[in-house]
């Protein structure tokens, strides 16, 4: 789903902007040749794919990158290294 969400070039542009820092809808629309309603629509798709998240700051809503992708990689490698070091200790202690 995330892959499909980033398959659209405009959504990729929006995502890349958000990677550089959180932005409001209006700010994104000002930086890209895309209307505000279109930006909102793209953000909705990105949000559903869990690539971006929204946070309310007072009356403003700002969008930022959802770091779940990095977190998933971390969890995965935590698991791999956990198994690896357990095996490693066993091999080290073989006599």
């Amino acid at each position: 789903m995330a892959f499909a969400a980033l398959g659209d070039p405009t959504r990729r542009e929006i995502f890349t902007l958000l990677v550089a820092g959180p932005r409001a809808v209006g700010e994104i629309a000002a930086e890209l040749p895309v209307s505000r309603p279109a930006v909102s629509q793209h953000l909705k798709v990105l949000k559903e794919a869990r690539l971006v998240r929204v946070e309310a700051q007072g009356t403003r809503r700002r969008y930022s990158v959802d770091h779940v992708g990095v977190a998933a990689m971390r969890d995965y490698l935590d698991d791999v290294w956990g198994q690896a070091l357990a095996n490693f200790a066993a091999v080290v202690e073989e006599r």
Partner: peptide
Amino acid sequence: GVSGEGGWGGILLGFAKAFV
């Protein structure tokens, strides 16, 4: 030079496919 906070500059599409 616009990689932004924490060194984020974009996403590897294949990575997104695998993990998000």
